[in-house]
Design a protein around this nucleic acid. Sequence first.
DNA 1: CCAAACGGAACGAACGTTCATTCCGCTCGC
DNA 2: GCGAGCGGAATGAACGTTCGTTCCGTTTGG
Lengths: 197, 197
Amino acid sequence: MAAHTESRRDASDRRQAILDAALELFAERGFHGTAVPLVAERAGVGAGTLYRYFESKEALVNALYRSWKAALASSLFEGFPTDLPPRALFGECYRRLCRFAVEHPRAFTFLELHHHAPYLDAQSRACDELVLRPIRDLAEQARHALALKDLAPELLMAVVYGAVVGLVRAAEAGHLPMPLEEALRQAEPVVWEAIRR
Amino acid sequence: MAAHTESRRDASDRRQAILDAALELFAERGFHGTAVPLVAERAGVGAGTLYRYFESKEALVNALYRSWKAALASSLFEGFPTDLPPRALFGECYRRLCRFAVEHPRAFTFLELHHHAPYLDAQSRACDELVLRPIRDLAEQARHALALKDLAPELLMAVVYGAVVGLVRAAEAGHLPMPLEEALRQAEPVVWEAIRR
DNA sequence: CCAAACGGAACGAACGTTCATTCCGCTCGC
DNA sequence: GCGAGCGGAATGAACGTTCGTTCCGTTTGG
């Protein structure tokens, strides 16, 4: 029975190795630009083995997307301190998002790159709501508390999220004179002043 | 000679039809996700004909990228009013960028999607500087005039550009409760307050 | 307690398909 | 009628996926 458990852990490791390899390659070269045997090689498994763990290349990219969307959601909301004044609430969201982007740059790039890609299925699309809805609610709250500009929360969210993505991409392109982490820290008050009333 | 001119215009139309078809398809499905014969069909030419105008698929995407980067640069800078106070200078840049995004949404998406793609050659990368440098200079100027926050211009540019991209993508995804043009108009003071001193 | 047989996971060569690119018969303007 | 330019079938490479085989941990009969 110990042996059985061990073999199951091996399988889980293998599956994870494939997901890790796919993350790197899909983030760097895109879905269509990445050959399945290359993913297998990077993961240290045979090409056929990959199909024991995922039904198809599409199933793989969907599993990867869902897994990282869930990770992002938990980074954002796990143990979130609810009763904070609006500025601190924003700071908490912002820093949690940035922490995710700094700790998992490939995952952040991957999620951004594959947002609304045609090969993502309905269930993967639904994961987006998991992240968007709670933030939208927070923004709506803060807006009614007269802490945010009197504009659609979706607009303010797009500005904030877009600014973070812009910084991550600028850092990737080597366009920033400082490390990404420092840029994101400096940008917090910048972005807050954008959306505050 | 009129005939010669006319046949040359025909050829130029064909080339343009191919570029237009490629823009739509590359923006929607990505470079690797788009088959060359599909581009040809959409352009209303034979698959072989495409190769009379472009050496390869890579040459096509590079020509497309350069052409639209140049169009963006000219939209931004053509007849730019130089001596304006900082706020008006920002407004001019911002509205010109937004006008381009609204008038050529596919081109905007395409440029964003293919930014720093591995199949773009050095000359295409160099086109980025064409857009970035003048804006960087303007930002540096405004910063020394104490109109902008005392942060790296590259950081502020990334925030502004990122915010615009964020709005465009949110509109594409149907996440905004108003048309893109209206959202961009509402976002101008939002973004200005982000970067102003 | 050992060895022989089993079961299923892993491998990677091989399959059919689809791709980018080429090539050649054809058309059409001069 | 002739040559430049076109179309789309042809081509070979590369793709996603499958399949026959190998390999190893476990079971089982002696």
